[in-house]
Design a protein around this nucleic acid. Structure first.
Lengths: 199, 199
DNA sequence: AGATACTAGATGACCGGTCAATTATAAAAT
DNA sequence: ATTTTATAATTGACCGGTCATCTAGTATCT
């Protein structure tokens, strides 16, 4: 298992791609290894050649998720040609639109879903999610700080705290979105971003 | 199953009480019917005498959860001897303290947990949660409106929207609390309640 | 005796994970 | 260049165990 062939990487990646969707939509316990191999049209026995365990698969899927999902949003967040405040607006609008349009208000966020389901009873998955979310928040916080220092937005509240609060509000909005099967919580969140965070 | 005896009710209720804790902590798919009957020290075969199915059990557990958890908070929220703004403060502080002290930052909220895990794929559970959450929000909104009309708090934002936003923020804070294994998200939420909602 | 309340044990489906066997690839020998 | 040998990659069949649910019965009433 030392040196992995290209074919190996491609198949493992395809397994991850299809399996990620299942974990995202159905959660960890409701997604079986068999579901994953069937979705990727890969023989059952091969799964454990590509991955050590179902848990290992989930953690690699989380990694892929953050890479794939956050990368385009990050580009907007760090675009130096745009003012910090406007970047924050574009960043949040982009993420909300993805949730609303691409996901049809049904799936929410893989990390939140798995975090909610697994954090209490699986340390490896918990830490994988927490570590990546921490990185994301640090980047948003930096831009909020920038906007505060420029006087573009209110600076009575600590940047890290207000970012943590709004990230949590976004998480909760996704939960409610799934419960309501409606975009209202996301639209409402976006309005509050404009009215409070970017005030 | 027509006429239910007192003994029947008591046993069913005890099953619900112990099973609720399991659903709360481990979620739906990770809690087996066997786990529940063992926890309640009830004979294995009896489960389906008291409940139609695992789903039926979960819905009744959700009902019990809202009754048990919201009732004391509701009393604070509706206490007419206290001003609306102060009632909102006490209400949120009470709920946060429950999360921090009684739950050791580990379990969050049964409704959010099950909602996140099950909403997309189980309509009955989804509706059961949504219906009860809607009732709770309506009661909070009424008090916010009251406080706004008295000029105790800011009224630039629509009461229902700001309540929905803060309820979502609370949900997200619980998710993050579980991920971080820390009370920070809850404390941060409470600070924002004071700084924004009750401003 | 008959009805009702209750439960032990069984059921087939499915779970995550393993494994002996097969196939593809490469190295060595001719 | 072809055959032989050795190794790595891949696989369907299968493991013990657990799942939600049901059946067939026993106990407890009236």
């Amino acid at each position: 298992m030392m040196h992995k062939t290209l074919k190996h990487e491609i198949k493992a990646d395809y397994l991850l791609e299809r399996g990620m969707e299942l974990l995202w939509s159905k959660g960890y316990n409701a997604t079986s290894v068999n579901d994953i191999v069937v979705a990727a049209n890969v023989p059952k026995g091969s799964f454990y050649f590509y991955f050590d365990s179902k848990e290992d698969f989930a953690i690699k899927a989380i990694d892929k998720y953050f890479q794939a999902q956050f990368a385009p949003a990050q580009e907007i967040l760090l675009d130096k040609t745009v003012s910090p405040k406007e970047r924050l607006l574009n960043f949040h609008e982009f993420r909300c639109n993805v949730l609303k349009n691409e996901m049809e208000c049904k799936m929410g966020c893989l990390a939140c879903n798995l975090g909610n389901e697994m954090a209490e009873h699986n340390e490896n998955i918990r830490k994988a999610i927490l570590q990546r979310e921490t990185l994301v928040q640090a980047q948003i916080t930096a831009v909020v700080k920038e906007a505060q220092e420029l006087g573009e937005i209110d600076s009575t509240l600590n940047a890290a705290d207000i970012v943590a609060f709004f990230e949590d509000a976004g998480k909760g909005a996704m939960t409610t979105m799934k419960e309501m099967k409606s975009a209202y919580p996301i639209d409402n969140f976006m309005n509050m971003v404009r009215a409070i965070l970017l005030k």
